[in-house]
Simulated assay, not measured.
Amino acid sequence: MNSFDKAQVSIQQLAKILRQGIKTKKKEVLKKIYNWQYINCIDLWVKLISANIRDHDLQPFLYTIIQVINGVVCLFPGPRYLPLRLKCIQMLNQLSSSSGVFIPVSSLVLDALEFIGNNKQDEKLGKDFDVSAVLKVPKQWLKLKYFQEELVLSLIELLSVHFSQWSFHISFPDLATFPLMRLRKFHEKITAESLRRPVKRLIDQVQQNVDFLQKKRDDAAFSPKDLESIESFVQIGTSSGNLPFVQYYASVVRKSLPQGVPQKESTQEQIVSIKQQKEVLDKSPIVIVDEASSIDGSKRKKQRT
């Protein structure tokens, strides 16, 4: 058995465990999924695929692992599993960035935001903890002010990563329309100023990028059928970071960095990263993952734009 076959067997085993959990919903089966061994195994394949997909034909693995991750999110939709959802969204963003595949993670983020604001924030229960260190939280944590703030900031960061990957693309005004509607609705619902401020800033920055690209689209002289012109639509110097959303995204990343990392250097790294993402998309057609496809990839469908 060669390495390709071994990888296929391993990833299909992950899909098999997930299918069993979806079908039976038995407690002992579900415990095999929401544990660090299973999630770290997925994460290992995500990192391997992301690092090698440009040089090797890993498309079958890519789509299978995407469906596995989506399946995990759907299997554990409750608020106590929000840290697990964050981890899954992070992995989907990584796969999207490295492969040039459009993965609609915005709905996963926005669905998670629906759990915020429904719980009264209890100052007395507040304590510091690392959201990324757990997959499931105790019920009482959902009322913690600190937990809600950290959750919102984490979700904003993940949504910013997603938007940054497509901030230069001609379709950005369209893909941002519905998320903006839901973000504005969420902003109106919440009352805590510590939550309203970062959400409002994200809304403003996304809207600026939408307006910027919409103006360029309105001024474009080519038709939607001119694929060559569409591919070279945004030649606006991502290396200089002059897209409205780029500087905002860099600031979000700076805030999430550990202390001691030079901010100027990290900003430039993020701009370079966005430029590299654009180069990936320029070299390969954009593919939209069909959410209706099976988690083992046997009925995978692709739509090219």
Rank of each mutant, 00 (worst) to 15 (best):
D128I: 10
L113P: 08
V109W: 04
Q148V: 03
S50C: 01
N118T: 15
D122A: 13
N2A: 08
P173G: 08
N70R: 12
L30G: 03
L175S: 09
D211T: 07
Q205R: 09
C41E: 13
E188T: 11
V210R: 14
A176V: 04
V137F: 03
R201L: 10
I66A: 05
K16A: 10
G100P: 01
D128F: 10
P173A: 11
I65E: 02
L155A: 04
R54P: 00
S171M: 10
L202I: 04
I170C: 04
P224S: 03
L82K: 07
N52I: 00
P224M: 04
R300H: 15
K301E: 06
L84M: 06
S160G: 15
K16I: 11
P173R: 09
N40L: 13
Q67R: 12
F4M: 12
A176L: 02
R54F: 07
K143G: 06
V9G: 04
E157R: 15
S229Q: 15
N70K: 12
L202T: 06
I103F: 06
E150N: 14
N52P: 05
F186W: 09
K25C: 04
K185H: 14
L14F: 05
Q20D: 14
Q259G: 10
N70L: 15
I103M: 08
V272S: 03
V289A: 05
A51K: 15
V261P: 02
E123Q: 11
Q303H: 09
S251K: 14
I170P: 00
T267H: 11
K143L: 09
K23S: 09
Q303T: 10
Q94W: 04
S273K: 15
I156Q: 06
L202M: 05
N2Y: 08
S132K: 15
